[in-house]
Every structure is written in structure tokens, then in C-alpha cells.
Design a protein around this nucleic acid. Structure first.
Lengths: 210, 210
DNA sequence: GATTTTTATAGACGATCGGTCTAATATTTT
DNA sequence: AAAATATTAGACCGATCGTCTATAAAAATC
């Protein structure tokens, strides 16, 4: 909970110490991420995002052209964050490939648990909402999936090379399937507010590789 | 497309032929189903649902207490519709169990294709939106999943009895996993506007049973 | 068959909220 | 000190939700 900061904001041009970095913008992005992963895009008003961090509307429209542009930045931000996470986990050479995947999933489960399974995946949320979203989001979201898929594909190739999974596994296809099903599991975990779907899917997928 | 019906509606008490059945109410539900499977709950306004079928607001609030009650009825309606569909397909004794499942999936793929993959699954859509929905929807949605799961579980048990799948398969667990992953595939098909995710998942799941 | 009751349509209305835009303010730059 | 720039402040407009009253037409009642 990072609610209502009653902090009085200084108006006017800020001191020139922090080059290019804006505290306020960062707060808006974090706040937006929290709300959107929980409620999605359409159901979330800008006011709510602002209220949480005590930022007035003017600031929002200073940093972002409009809600759509904000959403787009959130996706980029989320993608970058996740990419690093995947590089660290799935690319962690100190663990055998499949263990890395299991560790990633367990990590995600713990993460969702920390928020009582109320927050889902931004990409999944927006994907489902596509019908009501600006068309430009589509390519962006598809590309995020592709990036994730590549990371996993590489990891699975390592597993194959190590003989941990069948040599005739189509790693690309498996990686594609993984993320497809994973999003389903996240959705259901959110609905049921339990780790069950995630846990089951984790076991299932790992098993399907053998 | 069942857009703007300029049809002039008869006011007043309707003729007493149709016991309990209301044409208007049915139209509202169908219209709502179309829009909600495409855009979700929060992104959809009542006005849009009404405009599509040329029904004035007064009628809406005559048939439904409010938007939430309407949404709840939509879920029930969808659940009932789907239940019958599952009974027909998964319970079709003239086909071997696994073929029934494949047929069901192919049918769903065709269905989504007919709408250019713009419409998803109502349950999946609302599930993802839970964070912004009335809490009462949660139980309703969970129960729908359970119903679907039971239907599939029974079908898988038949497959097991027939020796089509391994005798140590946990059919309940498999059925749970199926729907979890399936929702993920529907989501992704909607995002990518192609049958690819559905097709891949169909093959994958069937294969995982053997 | 005239009156009352019931069922349904019609749409105006107010409150609220989301998104945009202009004004005000405080720093930097010149 | 003046001009330019970066940021905050919040007024404003339009849309949306849900209510409420008026109207209409059929059924029920007597």
C-alpha cells in the first residue's frame, strides 16, 4: 500500500540536480502499474492513479500525452522490467535449465501471493481488453510475448543440449505454449485468489517436457 | 453485426400469448453478450448495449435492477448455453472421448474465426477484470469453471476406461488444467487475431494425455 | 364495456467521473 | 532583471450511470 501522499509539491521548474530523471513521473508509473495489473485499463481512471500518489492532474498531462500514451509507456516499462527478470532467472548459468524455469515460476507465485493474488500480469490484462484498447497496443503486446518466448526458447535449447528434455522437442513451440498457458494460470489464480492454478500449471508444464 | 434496429417498439402491456418470455430482454442479453465478450465489462456502457438493439433505457432498468445485475444474468446465461454445448459435444457417445474434446476445440476455433477472433470468452474476460468487478461475480465465475471441469472430467474418465489415456491420469486435475490453459489460449488468439494459439494448445493438450 | 391495474417504453435529469486544456508558479537561463 | 522552461493546480466539458416521471397499451375487474 503506497496510498495518499499528502506531501505538498513544489510548483515551478525544479532544481537542476537530477538530470532527466523525474521523481513524479516514476511515481505515476509505479502507481499506474499497481492499479492496472489489478483492475485493467478501462476500469481505471486517471484520478485514481493520481490520488494514490498525491499528484495533480496537470502533472499527469505534462508527462504523458494522454491515457493511451501512458498505457503504452506502462507496457514498455513492464516489458523492460520483465526482460531483466527473465535474463536473471532463465539465463542463470549456475542452475540447470529446467530448474531455472521452476525457480522463475515459484518466484512469480510468491510475487502474486505478496499481493494476495489481486494483481495479475499487465500483458495478460491488456491482451484480454484489446477489444476496447487502442489498436497500437496490439503490436506492442504481441512483441512482448515474443521477447519472453525467445528467452524461454533459449533456456529450453540448453535443456535439450544437456539431455534434460527429449531431443525432438520443438523449443520454440514449447516456449510459445508455455506463455500462452501461463497467462491462463495467472488469470485463474487471480480469480480464485490462490496459487493453485499456477502451481498446477508449473508441474504440468515441466512434466510435459520430459 | 446486429446493429441499430430502428424498429418501433410497441408500448404498454404486451399481448398475453408469450408466457414470461420477453423479446426485448432476450435482445438485451444477446447484445450485452456480444459487446462484453469483445470489450469486457468495465469498458462497456449500458448505452452502447441499448443502441445496438434500439432499446431505450427505461426498458433496461425495467428488466434489470442495474448494470451489475445485468452482468450477473449474462454470466448465468452464458454458463447455461455453454453447459448445453458441452453436454452435446463432450457427452456425444457416438464419438470416442478424445475425439469429442478435439471436436469441441475445433468448434470453438471456428466460432472465434467467425468473429475474426475479436470475441473471447465471457468468463475469461470477467475473470481478468475481477479487480474492478462486484465481488459477487467471483463465486459465480469460479462455479462456471467447476461445471465445465466436471463435464470434461467425465469425458476423460471415459477415455481412461477405454484405455485411450494412461490409467494413472488424474482426470480431475487434467480437466482443471485444460480450462486454465484454454483460457490463456483464447486470450492470445484474441490478441493475435489468429487461431494459432488455440490450435497449438489443442494439439499440446491432447498429446499430453497420451 | 368502462374503469382500474399491470406491464412496458420513452427519455429527461442530476450526480459523478474521466480526460483535456489553460492559468499560475517557481526555477533556470540569458 | 527578463525571458524561457518545467511543473503544478484545478476549472471545464462531455460522457456515463442510474433514477424518476410520463406515456402508452394491453389485461383484469366489475
Amino acid at each position: 500500500m503506497s496510498s495518499a501522499t499528502p506531501l505538498k509539491r513544489r510548483r515551478g521548474r525544479p532544481p537542476k540536480d537530477q538530470a532527466g530523471f523525474s521523481q513524479t513521473k516514476a511515481e505515476l508509473i509505479r502507481s499506474g502499474m499497481e492499479v492496472l495489473t489489478e483492475k485493467g485499463y478501462s476500469a481505471t481512471g486517471i484520478d485514481e492513479i493520481l490520488r494514490r500518489v498525491g499528484v495533480p492532474k496537470g502533472s499527469f498531462y505534462h508527462y504523458f500525452k494522454n491515457k493511451d500514451a501512458f498505457g503504452s509507456e506502462l507496457i514498455s516499462n513492464y516489458a523492460k522490467f520483465f526482460e531483466h527478470k527473465l535474463d536473471r532467472s532463465l539465463g542463470n548459468r549456475s542452475l540447470p535449465p529446467l530448474k531455472r524455469l521452476s525457480a522463475f515460476m515459484q518466484d512469480a507465485i510468491d510475487g502474486m501471493a505478496r499481493h494476495q493474488f489481486k494483481r495479475g500480469c499487465l500483458v495478460g490484462n491488456l491482451g484480454q481488453e484489446m477489444g476496447a484498447l487502442p489498436e497500437s497496443f496490439r503490436r506492442q503486446l504481441i512483441e512482448v510475448f515474443e521477447t519472453w518466448q525467445q528467452r524461454l526458447e533459449a533456456c529450453l535449447e540448453e535443456a535439450k543440449a544437456a539431455g534434460d528434455i527429449s531431443s525432438d522437442t520443438d523449443c520454440k513451440q514449447s516456449a510459445y505454449l508455455f506463455w500462452t498457458g501461463w497467462e491462463g494460470a495467472v488469470l485463474r489464480a487471480k480469480l480464485e485468489r490462490t496459487p493453485n492454478a499456477l502451481q498446477s500449471y508449473a508441474d504440468f508444464f515441466i512434466n510435459s517436457l520430459k
